[in-house]
């Protein structure tokens, strides 16, 4: 019901408030005094509130980083938990300033949906989880299986494509929320459950016997997850994308949350440009020149955020893999700050 209501409210807001959002987002955010960030409702590692209502996750830290770049304070964020199928409507209607909700960058979303993607904060791919007792070794063996899937995701589409391409069939059970999807799989209603691989590890933690379930080796899709903003606001788009690049550059240069104050004294020109002790790059974004310093002070560099939320410092223990820096064989690559 909550989801339905959100859908309706979002729809109504889309009708009535669509125009209000098109003034400069940065000015709006500054005026409000906080950033309104669209986040996942509950995905461990990406966006999840704890019992006290404190949000944690890689996507959450991205929002905090943007807030830090603007206000110098990573706590000036309000989160709007969004169901997958409502997220773009919420963005279009101006209900949220930025959508960081493990959202896959695709051409249709980047064009006709009215959203703009510029950066990828997590390279993911879709996988399957099954019960060990079924003795399934490959997704190709899932012919005739009942599969639980969450509505409103690229997952739903990849699933169909994969089965069609391999000329096998399945029976879908489609839920609106991720919790219901996991619960239905866990009860045995479905033989398999599919979502992004990172999500499978996160959802497995919620199952009654996590160790009885196994993630299959096949990754059936490319899922570059990144922040989305409304089209037609270049300035805002650039702030959002360079926030990610600042965190990546900091990792490259070895600037961390712990040593950032010390690094202000660094003589390395790259570090000086990043932290704003040389050049006026922050002003070009419409921020202050120490914008990147504020980001790192608040959330640390990308590597730190990764390890804390999804990597070895978290329950998920996901390896860096393709999310390592380009210099370490991964795909994370930031354009130079100069």
């Amino acid at each position: 019901m909550k989801i339905k209501i959100t859908g309706l409210v979002v729809g109504a807001v889309a009708v009535l408030a669509a125009n209000a959002a098109s003034a400069g987002t940065l000015e709006n955010v500054k005026q409000k005094g906080f950033l309104q960030c669209g986040s996942n409702t509950s995905l461990a590692g990406f966006g999840l509130p704890d019992a006290q209502g404190n949000w944690t996750g890689l996507d959450v830290d991205y929002c905090r980083a943007i807030a830090a770049a603007i206000f110098g304070d990573g706590t000036k964020v309000k989160f709007t938990p969004l169901a997958a199928k409502d997220r773009f409507t919420a963005l279009q209607s101006g209900e949220v300033d930025v959508l960081v909700r493990n959202t896959t960058w695709t051409i249709s979303r980047d064009t006709t949906n009215g959203a703009t993607f510029q950066a990828v904060n997590y390279y993911d791919g879709q996988g399957f989880i099954v019960r060990k007792s079924l003795n399934v070794k490959s997704a190709l063996e899932l012919n005739g299986a009942t599969i639980c899937v969450q509505q409103g995701t690229t997952t739903e589409l990849n699933l169909t494509d994969y089965f069609r391409a391999n000329k096998i069939t399945y029976k879908p059970v489609v839920f609106a929320g991720s919790d219901e999807t996991t619960k239905a799989y866990d009860s045995g209603r479905c033989d398999a459950f599919t979502t992004d691989a990172s999500g499978l590890f996160a959802e497995r933690l919620k199952m009654s016997k996590p160790e009885d379930n196994v993630v299959l080796p096949e990754i059936i899709s490319k899922e570059p997850l990144g922040p989305a903003v409304r089209q037609g606001d270049e300035k805002w788009t650039k702030i959002v994308m360079w926030t990610h690049y600042a965190m990546l550059t900091a990792e490259e240069l070895g600037v961390t949350k712990a040593n950032v104050d010390e690094m202000l004294k660094s003589t390395n020109p790259d570090v000086k440009r990043l932290l704003g002790t040389e050049g006026k790059f922050g002003e070009g974004l419409g921020l202050t020149n120490d914008w990147a310093y504020k980001i790192i002070k608040a959330v640390g560099n990308y590597g730190e955020a990764f390890e804390r939320n999804v990597g070895q410092g978290s329950q998920l223990k996901i390896a860096r893999g393709i999310n390592a820096l380009w210099s370490k064989g991964g795909l994370q690559y930031a354009p130079p700050i100069r």
């Binding site: 009708v15 009535l16 669509a18």
Partner: peptide, 16 residues
């Protein structure tokens, strides 16, 4: 007004 607002808002955001 609601109709025109919606059409205009969606057009501005590139939604057809």
């Amino acid at each position: 007004i609601a109709y025109r607002n919606a059409v205009e808002g969606l057009r501005r955001q590139g939604v057809v």
